[in-house]
């Protein structure tokens, strides 16, 4: 998948690029609106990550123009402005999602993943997790012929860890994914621990869950080759 990062803050663009490349996306960067339009004119992108606060062109205006060329691309607005009108207007103008700064790269990838499934109909093949198979669409965990029932939050956590497999996720990152801005360190870290414990308990009745690792002092990760 090809991504255009339209962001005037160079360091931020670089970090996004580093992260997305690791997740096997192909990335281009455009620090100005003008460059962005040029690149959109020449290349085809699946995702355009658009910062609204560009030095030359107003982000929402750029979105309108870019939409004409890149009719197929999915637009995600990234902004520090973050007021409600921008958000509504952005979505009205055809943006697919909206992430207020500061955002987590993990969350960005999760949103992109969701758009891929929704927009491009990317069917998740049944992902293998050791002896288990995960059906993200039907939200099921399958062992041989048994369907294992997980609660909504349990499945959310498992699929978030799976999306970011081989990467340690902190309790904070996990609770932020589940509760967004309402996340609270004191209580929610414990809740994450309890939920992971439940997942392990439910799954280990069927098979080995060694792939779900605890990283001492940090959090959890799903280890897959």
């Amino acid at each position: 998948m090809k991504v255009l990062i339209v962001e005037d803050e160079k360091t931020l663009a670089e970090e996004m690029e580093t992260f997305l490349k690791k997740a096997f996306y192909l990335c281009d960067c455009a620090p100005t609106g003008k460059e962005a339009l040029e690149k959109i004119g020449v290349n085809e992108y699946d995702f355009i990550l658009l910062d609204l606060g560009l030095p030359d062109i107003d982000g929402l205006e750029l979105l309108q123009q870019a939409k004409k060329y890149a009719t197929e691309a999915a637009f995600i607005i990234l902004t520090a402005r973050g007021n409600i009108e921008d958000r509504i207007q952005g979505l009205d103008l055809g943006a697919d999602d909206y992430l207020p700064k500061p955002f987590s790269l993990l969350e960005l990838q999760s949103r992109m993943h969701a758009i891929s499934r929704r927009k491009y109909g990317v069917q998740d093949k049944l992902t293998e997790l050791g002896e288990f198979k995960i059906d993200l669409k039907k939200r099921l965990v399958i062992h041989n012929t048994n369907e294992i029932e997980l609660s909504r939050k349990e499945f959310d956590l498992l699929s978030y860890l799976l999306l970011h497999k081989n990467r340690p996720l902190t309790r904070m990152q996990l609770s932020e994914h589940i509760w967004g801005n309402f996340a609270d360190d004191d209580y929610d870290s414990n809740y994450i621990d309890a939920t992971i414990k439940n997942i392990r308990k439910k799954l280990s009745a069927f098979g080995n869950t060694e792939w779900l690792e605890t990283i001492r002092g940090v959090g959890y990760k799903i280890k897959l080759r």
């Binding site: 803050e9 360091t11 970090e15 500061p102 955002f103 987590s104």
Partner: peptide
């Protein structure tokens, strides 16, 4: 913006 940069760098 600086918070964004720090956060992505740490991640």
């Amino acid at each position: 913006t600086p918070i964004s940069i720090l956060q992505t760098k740490m991640e």
